[in-house]
């Protein structure tokens, strides 16, 4: 990463690793769909700058609901979500399970989208676009159309689009679940590399124990019916984590702990 970028990131408040400044907090959130579908019950979570938090749980545990609440796409039935930093446009970005690119626009135009919606011309942000595409390794694909890219590359574009505004927090909703395992491992590694480069704060929804242990420093294990947090695990392993981490005994221990927590989560309503 060049120095100009670093300066821009510092200015935008993305704290370097280790600094613990609160970004936003969820306080005792309930979300009820219809009359009696309790998607989320009493969820509290403090998100600090630089956190990589995984929401891990079975289907229907409300992890995607939590993400949509944070993104302000739906509103809590009770409880509150408080931003501890100024919430500017582009302070929050989302990566979905599908790449969700605009098929009619080139890669560069897709990445331009968040700025375009702020009324910024493409020339005024062309350095940001180039930088974001370089971060995900697609610097040679500015003028390609999404249909010309593989599934993994499309997901990279989607991540570049999320990074381009230098967000305070990135929400990822099972972004790699639809990819093959080789591509998923590669993107996991690249995501961690990205994290150590720009120190972004990520909330990552997944139902893969291994993915959550490899990526995150905090794992929030959730249970279903009603959706709720049952345990929080800490993966106190230093970043950057290399491919070797996947075969280390620490990794295995963390995976076992997470699996046990997840089994408890499944049993509680079984």
């Amino acid at each position: 990463m060049n120095t100009a970028t670093k300066a821009a990131l510092d200015a935008s408040g993305a704290a370097p690793l280790g600094a613990r400044a609160p970004v936003l907090s969820l306080n005792n959130i309930d979300k009820v769909f219809g009359r009696d579908v309790v998607a989320l019950k009493g969820m509290s979570l403090d998100i600090q700058a630089g956190d990589f938090i995984s929401l891990l749980g079975p289907s229907g545990c409300g992890k995607s609901t939590a993400l949509r609440l944070i993104a302000d796409l739906i509103h809590p039935t009770s409880g509150s979500i408080r931003w501890q930093v100024e919430k500017t446009p582009g302070a929050l970005s989302v990566v979905f399970q599908e790449p969700s690119l605009m098929p009619w626009a080139t890669v560069a135009d897709n990445v331009w989208l968040p700025f375009r919606l702020q009324g910024k011309t493409r020339t005024s942000v062309k350095d940001d676009i180039a930088e974001a595409l370089e971060l995900v390794g697609l610097e040679n694909f500015h003028n390609a159309y999404p249909r010309e890219l593989s599934g993994g590359m499309k997901m990279r574009v989607s991540i570049a689009r999320a990074l381009v505004t230098h967000p305070r927090i990135i929400l990822m909703d099972e972004p790699f679940a639809a990819l093959d395992e080789i591509t998923r491992f590669k993107l996991n590694n690249d995501l961690l590399e990205l994290k150590s480069k720009i120190g972004c704060t990520v909330v990552f929804v997944t139902h893969s124990v291994f993915e959550s242990v490899f990526l995150s420093d905090r794992i929030v294990v959730m249970a279903a019916r009603p959706g709720r947090v049952i345990r929080e695990l800490h993966v106190n392993e230093p970043y950057p984590r290399s491919e070797e981490f996947r075969t280390s005994s620490e990794y295995v221990a963390h995976c076992r702990a997470a699996s046990d927590a997840l089994r408890d989560a499944m049993e509680e309503h079984a």
Binding site: R68, A71, D72, L73, P89, G90, L92, S93, V94, F96, E98, S100, M102, L113, P114, L117, Q118
Partner: peptide
């Protein structure tokens, strides 16, 4: 998803 993304931004 794109609709949601537009809303987010």
């Amino acid at each position: 998803n794109l609709r949601d993304l537009f809303k987010v931004y």
